[in-house]
Nucleic acid binder design. Structure first.
Lengths: 339, 339
DNA sequence: TTCTTAACCGAAAACGTTTTCGATTTTTAT
DNA sequence: ATAAAAATCGAAAACGTTTTCGGTTAAGAA
């Protein structure tokens, strides 16, 4: 039950390893006759090239790395889906790692991927990442790098993103258009760019529509989850009785808030309207269903790999690959949590 | 910016490649002095071994493959989470592929993983998989294989599962205990083992508690999703007005059903009680919250990799690794969709 | 016929590592 | 002092492939 090699085939046929190799790869300097012979024998023996040897020789692995903050997350799993589908089509396999939103882990994982010699890396940054030296190392090693969703503006690589600011603006505008006069914002931590951008979009929308921005209406959800949505809603009810709309940084937070309002008899959207962000599956299933912003995860994953593929190809051909930034469209999904 | 190799270090230090290699791996036949020298130089040059060469030489990749039916799925993404965490701890990376519940894709992906020469494979079968020759090939190549959740009894490999039949029995029993007399079952397709087992558990529970099994109360959801849950609920309302309980094959179906009942003014659990299966996040967020069966995805992933790791290790040491079957506990989570 | 050209094949180097085994040097015992 | 034992090192093969380049044979031209 030994491994079939080129040598094996060569010996069986009484020809050289070189010719076997070239025959299998359709080199022009092998006669049709021997090509046929070799291919037949290869098939008979079920020859499969030893990727380890191929990798060593060609200096590429046909494998790419993907680092995301969390796997169990509707948006990110959609991204994964888009990426591995595209990758498989192009003959690439994907190694997936999760940073658990930790900078330290993220750094270690970058190192892992580098030492595994993946052909390219895709990453969505952890919220806590500020130091970007690990990403600079990727670039200095000339490994194609594409960032998506949670990016750093300081790294000159290709990026696939949405316009968080614009999307947040539209979400807030939707609340305003539906009659809300006093709108709170459940935001994320202070650091991550998308948390900042969504906050800025919210603020701009208020200002553009004659509503005054009130810092006391801003609630911070560090970890952006269900529980924190509940806590923020609870606080809000204690501190403000005049709020008639909330824009949350993500659906999960909104879902937690709605749960609290349902329990306390606060009517949504009659008393308070709520806008989520991301369009998780859960948002269509709860009562009332949640108005939100569609964030195209699958599409983002697809584009991310496609861009990476282009860059890997360009690199192989010795061409330069100037970074491209692609902003995907988002749109408001109106459901029953807003009027 | 060239790649640092053992040769490089050897030349700098005026010693042989052999000694450098051995020094870095702490072989006993290298003096402490040279070891220190080599290690220092390696650090200075930031030497990183070329995995391609290591792989070729050692015949292993320190990479494992994972095939699941769907990435965007709460249970499976939990499994992924458990697997990649464990794997990283042991220095293994994970290549993830999804079969989209297609036998054809699954087969192709097994081939891909084999040709990538992963050290081991973990798989949860597609619903449509009946032919198992691709799995037999994995075994005949002596590649460690562990199956989880959706397994085939015909392959003698290790398995990490839950007792679907028992869990379904308990779910149904919970409905009976809470007073339901006429219980429907929204089941999955006829083929997959877990769909069969859950059905059998349901049936057994009815029989054990003096309720007659009525085939007209069985509704089939081929793809086991939200939409089909809605359709089944719709049909049920038209065909039966005396049903007071439903056990669904998975939460998603239950959520679809609850949505329909909410829309039509059917009270849950007063008019109809509902039990889900899996404990997706969504089940705690909807109104009413969904009683369900906890299916420990993270734990299953963790155990799956651990078992695979044991077998890869045993294989390296030339020891046999008899297949083990581990059944994880499940339990009823009582929420507001049952009395 | 001889010379040129084209078609076909294979030797050999290279990719970077690991490991065996023999050679050399140093240390210890006598 | 010499012999034996221990410590230290390195040559070389091997893993399986790809690719360059020179060589041989066959075909065509003069």
């Amino acid at each position: 039950m030994k491994q079939v090699t080129l040598k094996q085939i060569a010996e069986n046929l009484g020809i050289s390893i070189t010719t076997v190799s070239k025959a299998l790869k359709n080199y022009p300097d092998v006669s049709k006759k021997t090509k046929a012979l070799v291919k037949e024998e290869a098939k008979k023996l079920q020859y499969k090239p030893n990727v380890f040897a191929v990798n060593l020789r060609t200096k590429q692995s046909r494998t790419v790395g993907l680092i995301i903050p969390e796997v169990v997350h509707h948006f990110f799993s959609s991204v994964i889906n888009g990426i591995i589908e595209q990758a498989e089509k192009k003959g690439y396999l994907v190694i997936i790692l999760q940073s658990n939103e930790s900078y330290k882990l993220e750094k270690r994982q970058i190192d892992l991927l580098i030492s595994k010699r993946v052909d390219g890396i895709m990453i969505s940054l952890a919220s806590t990442t500020v130091d970007i030296s690990h990403l600079q190392e990727v670039q200095s090693l000339d490994i194609p790098l594409v960032m998506f969703d949670k990016i750093s503006k300081l790294i000159p690589c290709s990026k696939i993103i949405i316009d968080d600011r614009k999307a947040a603006y539209e979400a807030t505008k939707h609340l305003i258009d539906s009659g809300c006069k006093r709108i709170a914002h459940f935001r994320g931590a202070l650091l991550p760019q998308n948390s900042i951008d969504r906050f800025l979009g919210y603020k701009k929308a208020l200002e553009d529509h004659g509503l005054t921005y009130d810092p006391s209406l801003i609630y911070i959800c560090e970890n952006v989850n269900y529980e924190e949505g509940r806590e923020a809603a609870d606080k809000l009810l204690k501190e403000h009785d005049d709020v008639d709309g909330i824009f949350t940084i993500t659906d999960l937070v909104a879902v937690g808030a709605i749960a609290v309002f349902n329990e306390r008899g606060v009517k949504v959207p009659e008393d308070i309207s709520i806008m989520g962000f991301s369009n998780w599956f859960v948002s269509q299933a709860i009562t009332p269903s949640l108005s939100t912003i569609d964030q195209p995860g699958y599409e983002m994953g697809k584009r991310t790999f496609k861009q990476l593929y282009k860059e890997m190809k360009a690199k192989k051909e010795g061409k330069p690959f100037p970074p491209k930034i692609k902003t995907l469209d988002t749109f408001v999904i109106k459901r029953n949590s807003t009027k």
